[in-house]
Each structure stands twice: as C-alpha cells, then as structure tokens.
C-alpha cells in the first residue's frame, strides 16, 4: 500500500495534535507513546514511523513553533531596532507562541536539551539549536558584525538562551515579568560580550 505525502503529513499533524492535548491534560510524565497513538487513532507501530520517541514529538512541536516565531519576527522586524532589541523580539516571539505548552515543555526540554547529551546531528534538540543559532547569527551579521562568531560566544549565547528558557518554563510571575527581566539582562550581558557599544543613548535616557 502506498501512502501519499499528503496523507503522511495529515497523520503527522494528527499525532502532534493528539500529543499536545495529552501533554497539556495529563502532563509530560503521564503521557505515553501508546496513549498518543490511541488518541490519534493509529497503531503504536505506525506512530514510530513518524516519531521514535515522545521527546521527538515535543521537539517537533517546539521546532514548528520556533519556526513560525522566526517568520513572525522577520515580517514584523523594525529596521531601527538595536541588535539587543532584535534578539529580544525574536526570542520573545518564540516564548509567546509556546506559552500554552509551558508546563510540559519544562520537563520535556530537560531531555531534549540535556546538557549531558553529546551534540549529535540526528537528535531533535540539536536541530532546533542549529536552526536557532543560524537565525541569531544572521541577525547579528545584519547589524554589521562578523559573519562567524567565536565558538565561545556562540556557546555563551546558547547557554543564556537555555537558562532563560528553563526559567520561563517555571516562571509564575504575573505576565511572566521575571522572564522579561531575565531575558533583558541576559541579552545585555551577551551583547556586552560581543564588545560592541550599542549606543545605549539610543534608548533616550535623559537626565534632568
């Protein structure tokens, strides 16, 4: 039996939807691949043709949301933004899109982005990392910085990003204002590490 690409993508979509609602209602720990297959109306074996693990499903949700966030950022980008403001807007677009998934993303990200996992090209977390860093690199170059950043700088960025992500996932402050502040402070730190002066005066501080 031949399965058309269309049918395939419909199934994939169904799995993601079923998984999302289970993750949200049952929690990350209590959701099994069998449960997801059942909810999607397919055999567990079929599910494995699409996603080898439930981490892979979560990673796929994450990747999709971040991709859309990237597009939203590109289309709404303000050419007057500083580098710091640009990266802030990019990251916050992603976090806003993921807001409803927050509760299950925290434990999921623990595995997807495990610091102990060796970077490997076929791990789903790694693909997200690569895509995101590419986008950030392109934003940085668009502000006139060298096309390739030192590995340490890239690592610092990713570390801060994950720290913000982890904080965000568990942040119950109103409007997640603590994450806003942490992201802001983290990006100040990162931009400072690039050794450029972004002209803070641009933000219009004016003393009496």
């Amino acid at each position: 039996m031949r399965i058309t690409a269309e049918a395939k993508s419909a199934t994939r979509k169904r799995i993601l939807e079923a998984a999302t609602s289970l993750f949200v209602s049952e929690g990350w720990q209590n959701t099994t691949t069998r449960g997801i297959a059942q909810a999607a109306g397919i055999a567990t074996g079929t599910l494995f043709n699409y996603f080898p693990t439930k981490e892979a499903i979560a990673a796929s949700l994450l990747a999709d949301a971040l991709e859309q966030a990237g597009e939203e950022f590109r289309s709404g980008r303000n050419p007057e933004n500083s580098l710091e403001a640009d990266i802030f807007a990019l990251i916050w677009c992603g976090l806003r899109r993921l807001r409803d998934f927050r509760k299950f993303l925290a434990p999921a990200a623990d595995t997807i982005f495990s610091p102990l996992a060796r970077p490997s090209p076929d791990s789903p977390g790694d693909a997200i990392r690569v895509d995101h860093l590419e986008l950030v690199q392109s934003v940085i170059t668009s502000h006139g910085l060298p096309a390739s950043l030192p590995a340490v700088t890239v690592q610092l960025y990713w570390t801060l990003y994950l720290g913000v992500f982890a904080w965000w996932a568990a942040d119950d402050s109103p409007g997640q204002e603590d994450t806003l502040a942490l992201l802001d402070q983290s990006l100040k730190l990162f931009v400072a590490s690039l050794g450029i002066d972004q002209g803070r005066e641009k933000n219009g501080r004016q003393s009496e």
Partner: peptide, 16 residues
C-alpha cells in the same frame, strides 16, 4: 533602572 528598548516596553504594556 536599565533603559528599556521598544520590544520590552511593548511586552510590559501588553501585560497591563
């Protein structure tokens, strides 16, 4: 207070 750029301002206003 550290200066806030517009994307941050926007979120604070949106929260309110």
């Amino acid at each position: 207070a550290p200066p806030m750029h517009y994307p941050l301002i926007r979120e604070v206003v949106r929260n309110e």
